[in-house]
Nucleic acid binder design. Sequence first.
DNA 1: GGTAGACCTGGACGC
DNA 2: GCGTCCAGGTCTACC
Length: 295
Amino acid sequence: MKKLHAIGPFNFPRLLVSHGWAKLAPYQKVEGSSSISYTAQLNDGQVVEIKVSDAGDGVYVEMMPQLAGYEEVVRDMINWMFSLQQDLGEFYNMARDHPKLSHVVEQGIGRLLRCPSVFEELVKTILTTNTRWTGTIRMVDALVQGYGKPWPDNVQKRAFPTPEVLARVDLEKLRKSAGLGYRTPYVNALAQDVVSGVRDLEGLKHSEHPTEEIRKELLSIKGVGEYAAASVLMLLGRFDFIPVDSWALRLVSHEWHAGAQVGQDEVEEAFQTWGSWKGLAYWFWDWEYLKETEG
DNA sequence: GGTAGACCTGGACGC
DNA sequence: GCGTCCAGGTCTACC
């Protein structure tokens, strides 16, 4: 078991619930513990199970089977997925004395759980659009079960399908078996663009291009609109835009407009002062509306 | 640039 | 059990 340190402060349990990704395959909660596992397909095609547990100031990582020569690959993967090297110091300095955000500093929250690849991030995000959360879970599960490579030790566990597999899939079969509906050609086209080299999605992780440029690149993907682009930007560690969905409109409406109908402009305006941390401020805001609806 | 309608599915609801 | 309606973002055609 290997320990990886995080840039502090770090809150593992809160990272797992930072958004819904932990509930989507091939992430899986480890029964009877606070750990999480992820079934990963390595670059050479081997499938491993990676168990990640809380280590206080970082995480413990266990790869099964323990393959020699892959320590660095797995370390980089986990560092990225759990945002271990993300420095939120500047955001914390802004949030520290703010009544709606001081809790992020006190609790060491603000990181978002990621997928190992931007391709997987985008496919999952496309599958969150125009559907309920239960629909997203169903579609992702069907994709993984239908097209993911199995872990040899337990074939019930499968990795997320590669772009190569989704690029050459039978569209009608994908549409029906995974229930992706009209999203089917979007996922297939994205996979084809990755395989053909038209898009270098993984290069976006460490790109030095301005956020607006990356946003335009994301918006050029069929099925990715403003909400989806902003969501993926957040997962890339860029918080200049807010993923405005119907829920965001509801929250802002109740927080600042007494329940009156609002649009994207009002949401952006509400967080204008947070500059390049806008998205994160929105995401972890202490919403009055949530307290009301939770009773 | 703005707007309306279509896309697709599952769940809620009424009968 | 069946039919209808609705919610959820994005795309496309049209103005």
